[in-house]
Design a protein around this nucleic acid. Structure first.
Lengths: 246, 246
DNA sequence: GTCTGATCGTGGTCAGACCAGTATGCTTAC
DNA sequence: GTAAGCATACTGGTCTGACCACGATCAGAC
């Protein structure tokens, strides 16, 4: 073990990472398990501790593992934050990606609502109902209104009972949060938007209750399309006349 | 710099990571840029080199940065592999996630085909045409057939000209590759599947050419549904009688 | 039995060193 | 003057051995 020459062919980091990867993928290491200490791992694989730490840190940012100070390293259940990080970086370097991410969000939600039509239970309906009520109540507030809107859409995804869809949606929603908010500020400029917001969400809710996937999907899609339309009109300055009151 | 006590409040790793994160998010560091050397970074932030390496390694697994041996560390364009890694690990620990990931894939593809109806160009159509031809040619081969199938579906996503959808699709497709292959082996057991495969893909292609998003979406969805049905029948052992030849 | 404290193990970090190549510039040969 | 060759100063990749601060554990005091 005194040779840095990895007879295994892999460099230090790769060796450790591959070692742990294999244990994790084959199920030898499951969530909740505690890894052997960094020192043991180092001597076991014939590498130095800093290298082991690199590998553990890599697994940490992937959300696979959690390094607990003075306790040890434990395997965790895969977490969303990774995707969040990734998309945050990715988006930062490609600002034009925003519209693109929105497309992905639409994709996720439309699929989610289809699944939700099959799988939603009473609790899901209640959650949606509450969100719907909230949307009506907060129609005049940009902040609370945006949050209510967000909650409703999230409730749809939750109702799909799909972990993957939830994860993906959560990671995109985070990115779209601010755009969501600024969009909400348009409501004041478009009084007609108020009825659109309330009615549209209600229609989506009804389709969901009716457990009609096609209608739910179509309604949701239309909802997004109308939102886009409002945004377009805002860009070109086509404000509702009736709102000139200010 | 002799104090490990970080006056900045953050621990070593966090300090370096936050430092780089900020540069990356604000655009001070853009893809292609070369970071300063590990040593410089270490003295600059008052930490040791191993810590710097941890941070760089973290960014590497996130696909934000690439460490080139004896050259330096350069900022890269965000890459899919991160998501791939994540889903690989996530799936390994929650096997029941497979069906779930499939749902996400359906979501992505259906949205992609809608966009593709608007955005696809000649090159996209040609790619799809080639894939379609290949599917017909390789109908009797499990391996090549599966690949042709995969290429066709990927071509749909590519035709959407959406980076985000492509990224997501790529990361899921990787996971579903083997299931795709095993599914392909069913073809031999289900002769009726051959016509299904060819015809279905052709119908999808035609809807795309017609630039009819609704029809394309619906056809693609049906395609997936039929695939599921075949799988279900395989599970319960309901094999086509006509294939008893073996 | 309970409380207290020493010890051991853990992650967190550092400093300094060596290796192996790359890149560059300077020297040397033509 | 130009071109080949070599020395040097980088770069990442790694190791060693050490220290710190704190959690856990168990022995000993009460």
């Amino acid at each position: 073990m005194e040779f840095k020459r990895a007879a295994d062919g892999e460099k230090g980091f790769e060796k450790v990472f591959a070692f742990l990867r294999e244990r994790l993928l084959t199920g030898s290491l499951r969530p909740g398990d505690r890894l052997i200490s960094e020192r043991e791992l180092a001597t076991l694989l014939g590498v130095s501790r800093p290298i082991v730490r690199e590998a553990l840190r890599a697994l940490t940012v992937l959300g696979i593992v959690e390094i607990r100070d003075r306790i040890g390293t434990v395997v965790t259940r895969p977490d969303v934050s990774v995707l969040n990080d990734f998309f945050t970086f990715a988006l930062a370097q490609q600002a034009d990606m925003l519209e693109d991410v929105m497309q992905a969000r639409v994709a996720i939600e439309c699929q989610a609502i289809r699944l939700a039509c099959e799988r939603a239970n009473i609790a899901d309906f209640e959650r949606l109902q509450r969100a719907l009520t909230k949307i009506g109540e907060t129609i005049d507030e940009a902040d609370a209104g945006g949050m209510a809107d967000f909650d409703f859409h999230r409730a749809i995804v939750v109702a799909s009972h799909s972990e993957t869809l939830s994860v993906l949606h959560a990671s995109m929603a985070g990115l779209l949060t601010h755009s969501h908010r600024s969009r909400r500020e348009l409501v004041q400029a478009f009084p007609s938007m108020k009825t659109y917001l309330v009615d549209d969400h209600r229609r989506i809710f009804e389709a969901l209750i009716a457990r009609d996937p096609e209608r739910a999907d179509a309604t949701l899609r239309k909802h997004f399309a109308i939102g886009d339309e409002y945004r377009r009109r805002a860009v070109v300055g086509d404000i509702d006349k009736t709102s000139a009151s200010g």
